[in-house]
Simulated scan of single mutants.
Amino acid sequence: MAEASAGAAAKVVIGSVRETAPGERRVALTPETCKKLVAAGATVRIERGLGLAAHQPDSAYVDAGAELVDTADAVLAQADIVACVQPPPAAAIASIKSGAVLVGMLQPQADAARGEAIQARGLVAFPLERLPRTTRAQAMDILSSQAGMAGYKAVLIAAQLAPKFFPMLTTAAGTIRPSKVLIIGAGVAGLQAVATAKRLGAQVEGFDVRPETREQIESLGGKFLDLGVSAAGEGGYARQLTDEERALQQQRLADHLKGVDVIVSTAAVPGRPAPKIISAAMATGMKPGSVIVDLAAETGGNCELTRPGETIDHGGVTIAGPLNLASSGAMHASDMFARNVFNFVSLLLDKQGALHFDWNDELLAKTVWPERAAS
C-alpha cells in the first residue's frame, strides 16, 4: 500500500494558463493532447477559459480528463510542468512552483527581467525555439509548424489587399491576366506561401539565396527566380555575398520587381534582425496597386519601409507588416503547437508518468536554458 502511495505522489502535474500577450489566441495544450498526457499517467490542470480564444471549450478539456482551476496562480503553484505559447511575464513566472519545468516559446534572452525571473525560481526552462533542427526533432519543431500557418495567412492577406484577381479569368468582358506573385525566402513559411498562391491561381515565383531551394519551389508549382548570383556555400548553408555580388543581385531584383504585382517576403534568421532585401527605392519602383506583405515584420522586416503591425500606402504601393500571423489561425495553429509540446514533454516522462530528465538526450541538453555544464 505504501508503494502505491509513493507512486501516486510521483505523478507529474502538467498545467497551462490563459495567454496574456496581446492578440495571442493559441494554446499550448488542447483537449487532444490533454487526453494523451492523462493516458501517459500525468495529471493535467488548466485555468478555466484556457482554450476559448482557440475555440476549445472547457467542457472539451474536462472530457479529455483535465481538471479546471479557477485562477492562473493556483495552476502555476501546483504544476510540475507548465506549458505555454508566449513567454509568461516576470510576475507570472514568480508564481510558478520553484524548480518546475517551463516549456514553450520562451525567448529568455530577449528580456532580461524574464530571464532573471526564470533563474530566480530555479526553473528548468525549455525554450522550444532552441530545439536542434534534426530529423528526430521535427515533430517538436514549433518554428516550422507555426511558420506554415503564417505563410498561408500572409498570402490570404496579400490577396485581400491586392486590387486584382490572383487567377486568370476568361469572361464576357475580356480576359483577366493572372497576378504575378513573388515569394521571397523558401523556408517553411515561404514554401507554404508558394503553394497557397499557386492554389489561388497566381503566376508564382520563389526567390532564395540558396540555389538548392529551386527544386522545392518548382515542386510546388512555382518558378525559381534566378538572379544569376549564387550564395551556395559548404554543408548546405548560404555563404555571405561579396559587395559586388550583392550589388548585382540587388540591381537585378529591383529591375524584376517592376513587373511584380505582389510580394510576400518571409526571409528571417532566428535570433537576429531580418535581412533587408527590399529597399525603399525598390518599393518605390513597383507598379501602383502592387502589394508587399512582409512576414518578417516582427524582427524588423525585409522591406526598409515596413512598419511592424501597420499597413501603409507608399506612393500607391501597399506595404503590410502583420504580427503574430500564426495566432490568426488559432485553431489549427494550436493543434500543431500543442502536438509539438506533447512530443517534447513526452521526453520528460518515464513509463509511470513521473518527471525524469535524460541529459544524455541531445534534444533536452541543447534546448534547456540556461545551458547545463557538461557532466
Rank of each mutant, 00 (worst) to 15 (best):
D335E: 13
E371D: 14
L29D: 02
F166P: 00
H314Y: 15
Q56G: 07
T30C: 05
V13Q: 05
G300S: 14
G301L: 05
S95P: 00
V101M: 02
T170G: 15
Q251C: 08
A125G: 14
V209W: 06
G285E: 00
A283V: 11
V103R: 02
I96M: 13
A296P: 08
Q160P: 02
M282Y: 07
L364G: 13
A150V: 01
S265C: 03
I96E: 07
V17D: 01
M336Y: 10
R372Y: 07
S95V: 01
S144I: 02
T33H: 06
E304R: 13
D141V: 08
P288W: 01
S375A: 13
V204W: 03
P89L: 02
G174S: 05
A79W: 02
G7C: 04
R48C: 06
A172D: 15
Q240A: 14
E212R: 10
A28Q: 07
D208L: 10
L29F: 07
V62H: 11
L253V: 09
S16H: 07
P31E: 14
P22N: 06
I93E: 02
I118S: 01
G222E: 04
G301N: 02
A195F: 07
N302V: 00
V368C: 12
T20M: 00
A113M: 06
R272E: 01
L348P: 03
G235N: 09
D80A: 06
Q86M: 09
V38N: 04
M336W: 08
Y61W: 03
I292C: 08
A280R: 11
R45G: 03
G285Q: 04
A100Q: 00
Q352L: 14
V44C: 12
D63M: 06
A247T: 06
L161T: 11
V101C: 05
D63Q: 15
A150C: 09
H55A: 15
T135Q: 06
P273K: 09
